[in-house]
Computed example of a mutant assay.
Amino acid sequence: MQWLALADPGSGSPVETLARLRMRDAGSAPETQVRFVTPGGRTVYVDFFFRGSGLVVEIEGYAWHGSRAQHQRDTARYNELADCPEVRKMLRFTAADVLYRPGAMVRRVQAALG
């Protein structure tokens, strides 16, 4: 049952867990479900944060954007997150990226980390 230790109870989805494991296999160890308070006072949690480089990585599922209102909410969230002083760069990937193109996702994250 050693593999259970790899599960993160704070993960927002199974695809997010898979993305974290893919990044870990590639030698990256981001913090997960990191809390930010935007300059406007909004609390935002991000899927992954690489504190040393200020890189935020988000995994986007279709269900999250199932309506115009949800899409608008996410756009506002993204823009507010960009105003946080700790955040220097953000990457967003779809569930399909994680499931079907994990190598490309990992390479893009590694390139952003420098």
Results as ranks from 00 to 15, higher is better:
1 M>F: 14
2 Q>Y: 13
2 Q>E: 14
2 Q>D: 13
6 L>W: 12
7 A>H: 12
9 P>Q: 03
11 S>Q: 09
11 S>L: 07
17 T>I: 06
18 L>T: 11
19 A>K: 01
24 R>F: 13
26 A>P: 03
27 G>R: 02
29 A>I: 13
30 P>H: 00
31 E>G: 12
31 E>V: 07
31 E>Q: 09
33 Q>E: 03
33 Q>M: 04
37 V>K: 11
38 T>S: 08
39 P>G: 08
42 R>T: 06
42 R>C: 08
46 V>E: 03
49 F>R: 07
50 F>T: 01
51 R>C: 06
51 R>I: 02
53 S>H: 14
54 G>M: 04
54 G>N: 04
55 L>R: 08
55 L>T: 00
56 V>I: 03
57 V>H: 06
59 I>F: 00
59 I>L: 02
63 A>H: 08
65 H>L: 10
66 G>I: 03
69 A>R: 13
72 Q>L: 10
72 Q>C: 11
73 R>N: 14
74 D>Q: 07
76 A>Q: 15
78 Y>A: 15
79 N>I: 11
79 N>V: 09
83 D>Y: 14
84 C>T: 04
87 V>Q: 04
88 R>F: 02
91 L>D: 02
91 L>R: 05
92 R>K: 05
93 F>R: 02
94 T>E: 00
95 A>V: 12
96 A>E: 13
97 D>F: 01
97 D>K: 05
98 V>P: 01
99 L>T: 10
99 L>M: 06
100 Y>M: 15
100 Y>L: 15
105 M>A: 03
106 V>E: 00
107 R>D: 11
107 R>C: 10
107 R>T: 14
107 R>A: 12
108 R>M: 11
111 A>S: 11
112 A>K: 07
